[in-house]
Design a protein around this nucleic acid. Structure first.
Lengths: 198, 198
DNA sequence: GCCTCAGGTTAATCGCCGTTCACACTGGAC
DNA sequence: GTCCAGTGTGAACGGCGATTAACCTGAGGC
């Protein structure tokens, strides 16, 4: 139904391998219905093959989900640290860089955003631990910046603030498409900045 | 494990019937693992009975989830309209009333908040439609207030803004417990007001 | 012209889990 | 005391869905 094609998954966006096609289709389906409600046959059908063909490319359905979530977390962490580094020394500028990065990511990859916080629990302990560790490092990036903007606040409060900002920005998938992308980006960034500095 | 006892489910909080116990336990489990990952036996075990005993109180596992989500939506809608009505004519006061109501609800019922937006898709079409309709009416309550505060903004933009505020406030379950309840309530309300008025 | 191998296919297998069944055990109502 | 409604229990049943097995094909390399 959706023509949405979350961009953060492809190595080679132009000519995606079958493996990449599967990951993208799976992300879309997982986001719509939840990973446990999506059958291996559904994923196969979405790329024009039968269910078991998946196993030529992934060890298991869980492995697909794991790879998906690991890539997202890595991409967020890498992008976040990069943007902060490029933003100079001003905490407000750093915050703005993080906000704009997260807004762009959420608008570009609504399905991945949805899957990430809905299906973390479906991973094996081992995979989940690894994803959570990457997520934690990304959060700490935000916490460090927020701490400089609110010197009086505890670390725990800054962490809560960071999570609240993620919730705000990641609300995108819920208010799907009725507002044009640039306007939406502006609105979310503005709200996030106001909330962050309040 | 958790001593959390979401309060919005009981009619008689003091001496809950077996039926209510089941709903509470199920909400907790569903929030932790997702409704599809929780077995009927798990729910039974959580209240000290075997799985099939559930069927003395609910027609099916889906019926449990449906009742849970319907109650939440009804409670939110009722609470929201009531608070707005009691807040007088000032849009800012009305907004503050809504924000404080939502913050209290989210802090009191983290499990329900989680289940509500994670497991809506597991409902039958009929039930899902009904829940969505209640949710929509609650959202419109917010949209009406936001529209008066931003007369220049489109309805769609106000709706996006409302969803963003829900995302912010409902982030509570993700930053579980490290900040004391009153401080958390203050922080979330402050951030939400700033974001709403930005 | 063969051999290999990547990538598919269809037809089992197999375990899990929602649900139903047939049979107790209560504890009031009368 | 009897009876019945309400609750539970353990043992099937049945379907669904992930995985595996066995077999096929077509494109290169040699």
């Amino acid at each position: 139904m959706t023509s949405q094609q979350d961009s953060a998954l492809h190595s080679d966006a132009a000519n995606p391998s079958r493996r990449e096609q599967i990951l993208r289709a799976a992300a879309q389906l997982f986001a719509e219905r939840g990973s446990r409600a999506v059958g291996v046959d559904d994923v196969g059908a979405a790329v024009g093959v039968t269910g078991p063909a998946i196993y030529r490319h992934f060890a298991s359905k869980d492995a697909m989900l794991a790879e998906m979530l690991l890539r997202i977390s890595e991409r967020l962490l890498a992008g976040g640290t990069e943007r902060v580094a490029a933003a100079g020394a001003s905490p407000v500028d750093q915050l703005r860089a993080l906000v704009e990065f997260q807004v762009d990511f959420a608008l570009d990859n609504p399905a991945l955003i949805t899957v990430q916080d809905r299906d973390l629990g479906a991973l094996t302990d081992r995979d989940a631990r690894q994803v959570r560790q990457l997520q934690r490092r990304y959060v700490e990036e935000w916490v460090a910046v927020l701490a400089r903007l609110h010197p009086e606040a505890s670390t725990a409060a800054c962490r809560a603030r960071a999570h609240a900002l993620f919730g705000l920005i990641n609300s995108t998938p819920h208010s799907a498409g009725r507002v044009a992308r640039p306007a939406m980006a502006g609105l979310l960034a503005e709200m996030a900045m106001a909330a962050a500095l309040a």
